[in-house]
Amino acid sequence: MRIPCPICGNRDSREFDYMGHALTLDRPAPDAGLGAWDDYLHNRENPAGPTRDLWFHGLGCGAWLVVSRDTVTHEVFGAELARDVTGGRA
């Protein structure tokens, strides 16, 4: 599998660490309630098909990416800098 890092170009997947589903970028408000926080921390879909994950280019440029891929076909559709996805918010 190759991941198209927006900075480095196409790179072998061994240069990356998988960091979980990209929904972690959508952190609930501090007062969103226990249900929202429980969901955010612990509950994940297990999609057969398209998904969006965070990948860390640790053996490369060091950027965090949001990668779109298909869990069934293993096709990688693209990658964006997580910074650009979030507009720079933490």
Binding site: C8, E15, G60
Partner: peptide, 19 residues
């Protein structure tokens, strides 16, 4: 290294962070 080292991709003065 898994880096693509062919001339067309990695010319003189090219640099990369990699494994």
């Amino acid at each position: 290294t898994p880096l693509d080292l062919r001339d067309a991709v990695f010319a003189v003065d090219a640099t990369a962070r990699t494994e």
